[in-house]
Amino acid sequence: MGGETKGKLFCFLLRVTLPDVSYELSWIQRPPRTSAVFANTIFQKPTFLFHVPLVVLKSVQAKMFRRKLLALDYAQPDNFNVNNAAELGPLVVWLEDQKIRHMKIEDRAALRDTAGPEWSSAFQRYLTELNCPYADGKKEVVVDWLLGYAVRLEYGDDAETFKSVTRATVDQAKRPGAPSSNPLDNLDFESAELKAGVTSLSMLLQVPPHPDHLEQLKAISLLISNTLSKEALQNASTSGDPTKDSEHIPLNKTELGFEAGDYILNDAAKIVRLLHLKELRDLQSKINVAIVAVQAVTADPKTDSRLGKVGR
């Protein structure tokens, strides 16, 4: 790995992982597809599956875009107006960044400048590069082709999964009361039996009562996953030194840093703070893991004692 790429990768990771650096990334640009060349050669001409005759397209244009946009998980699939430059530009950029990924990230600059005067020529160049057969055609056609192309690439990425999707499976997933193979889905959450079970569980685990038994169930689940799960037990046994107990400090000895009004609110605020700290600590640990993972690639510390010179 070259020094430059190494550096960029590292800066990039640090920027996206660090809490103190607030970079505004509306989305992360994804690098070019390795399969882009493949996609280009195989699907040079639009295939019949996704190609829509022009007449049909005109009548159902809005709906047409909506379906493909939905299929691609675009954030605003409804009412896309192809003739509005303020909507078209971002869509093209999004398609390239997330789905088509034809160019290298650094080469996308011209295309990203959607408000600039050079944009339409950059867009034309882009279409030529993608071998769009309608490059100088109407915008509707071009956008439809572009969306279709993106759908094809997405499909090609995971063809095996999509193959098994049929109308029947989609319908079943949509239907709310469909019989599921998961027994938990078929539970009656309001049955007296369940309520009694939750109560006895919480007695057993000493979870304080809550009027809503489902909330209480959530609390029980948190408690179990935090302290009684396999991982938690393992962690406790590895770091289980006897001094650990003394690290517990009573709530009244911690400082809140502000005054909430009365002592119950104060204590509640302290608890929220402590929970927040726990989350922050988890985040920081994940950051450290990420840094260590990058270091495995980049780190190569050297010393050369011959260079050393003690001064006067």
Binding site: F10, T298, P301, K302, D304
Partner: peptide
């Protein structure tokens, strides 16, 4: 005064270190 370090550095390393601070030390291990 006038001492020299035992970590091999060249001009390009220094540029990066000035920009990245401790992130440079992390990257290089």
């Amino acid at each position: 005064v006038g001492s020299k370090g035992i970590i091999p550095m060249h001009a390009q390393n220094l540029e990066e270190a000035l920009e990245m601070g401790m992130d440079w030390s992390l990257r290089e291990g």
